[in-house]
Amino acid sequence: MTGWASPSAFALSIGLAAALAGCGKSEPVAPPLAAAKPATGKSPSSAGTEQSASAEEVARQARADVACPAKIVSPPRAENAAVDDVVGVRPGLTYEEAMNAVLCSNPLLVAGPATGRGFNLKAPTAATLRQGFVARIAEPRVVKSSKQILQDMQRDTIARGSNAVREDLKPGQMKWYAATMGLQGQERVVSVAREERFAADQTPTIDSLTSALLKKYGRPTQDQKASSGRLPLLRWAYDPFGRLITETSPLYGRCMGSSDPDAGVTLSPDCGIVVQAMLFPQRANPGLVDRMQVGVVDQAGGYRAITSTEQALSQIDLQRRTQEVEKASKNSKAPTL
């Protein structure tokens, strides 16, 4: 359930969480993105949906309105502020800016509004808000017979029953999730996360990826090395004033991030920007990386955004009810008693 995580924190919960199982994930639920329309959120014409199509054709259809490079008009981060982006996508961008930036990062990505996940706002009509979007690599559209569909369902049932590990991403694929908050048309990014599974001929080493992350994001709050039962993890946590949290800070260990696009985030006014990266080594060679997750969240900014959005929604609802009462008092007939 979505809702309050604590008296001083909001929690984003989701309906798409997948449990980690070794280097794979168990039965992930993939959003239906192949027919999603970017930026506008509209679905493309249903004409021709019964015909098979390659991944390139599916992406081309879904990305009809995408213009690259992405145009960003939101103010850039301050010159001395912490690096807070994932491939150029960061908290504070508008919904449309972030979606276009994500789509422009790879010509095969398609995106659409996220459903089944979000913050549980304590305000009327909150369910109508866009609270983020998901993006994945387009998949070929294959027209199947009834027999083939039945066979697929049977295989899925057997796999679930045996708790089989099924990879959510193919080599060379990636996926994104961005959480947004704000009134309709005013949504801004609160958090963003990206996962990439590397192609077999482009597999980086643990050391090279770690060095690249440190070069981009700087000195970390936490640098967790790989060990028995622990994955390599880097975290850069800042307080609301933009100061790096270190082991001597009272906030050390309290301001956590989220690097998994399928996971939720927690927002607290006590924490600022938190960047987190997690590396998943190959099973056959732990010195090589099978996939990487990187996420960033603006905890204090997101907390303020939710609070102000709740207040604005409540005010809008109060105005609506007041206008309805005024209209009824002028137009209604006297009751028959």
Rank of each mutant, 00 (worst) to 15 (best):
W4I: 09
A9M: 11
I14T: 15
I14P: 03
S26L: 14
A34E: 15
A34D: 15
A35T: 14
A39P: 00
S45E: 09
S46G: 11
S46W: 06
G48E: 12
T49V: 10
S52I: 04
S52Q: 07
S54D: 07
S54H: 04
A55S: 13
R60T: 14
A62E: 05
D65E: 11
V66F: 03
P69E: 11
K71I: 08
A82N: 10
D85E: 11
V86D: 01
R90S: 04
G92K: 01
L93D: 00
L93K: 03
A98D: 02
A101W: 00
V102H: 01
C104I: 06
S105I: 05
P107T: 06
L108A: 09
T115F: 10
G118T: 09
F119W: 15
L121V: 07
P124A: 03
T125M: 05
A126R: 02
T128I: 02
Q131N: 12
G132T: 04
V134K: 13
A135Q: 03
E139H: 11
P140A: 07
R141N: 14
V143N: 09
V143D: 07
K144M: 13
S145F: 08
Q148S: 14
Q151D: 13
N163E: 11
R166W: 03
R166Y: 05
E167H: 12
L169D: 00
P171Y: 01
M174D: 14
M174V: 03
M181I: 13
Q184L: 08
G185R: 06
Q186N: 13
R188S: 11
V190Q: 04
V190G: 03
E195I: 05
E196F: 00
A199R: 10
T203M: 09
P204N: 12
D207F: 03
S208C: 04
L214S: 12
Y217M: 06
Y217C: 05
G218Y: 03
P220S: 12
P220H: 09
T221M: 07
T221A: 10
K225A: 15
K225W: 03
A226T: 04
S228F: 07
L234D: 05
Y238E: 02
P240V: 04
P240W: 01
I245N: 04
S249T: 02
P250I: 09
Y252T: 08
G253K: 03
S258A: 14
S258M: 06
S258G: 12
P261H: 08
V265L: 02
P269C: 10
P269N: 11
V274N: 00
P281K: 01
N285M: 06
P286L: 06
G287H: 06
R291N: 08
V294H: 00
G295Q: 04
V296R: 00
V297G: 00
Q299T: 05
R304I: 09
A305C: 06
A305P: 02
T307L: 11
T307E: 13
E310H: 07
I316A: 15
D317M: 08
L318S: 15
A328G: 09
N331F: 11
K333E: 13
A334Q: 10
T336L: 09
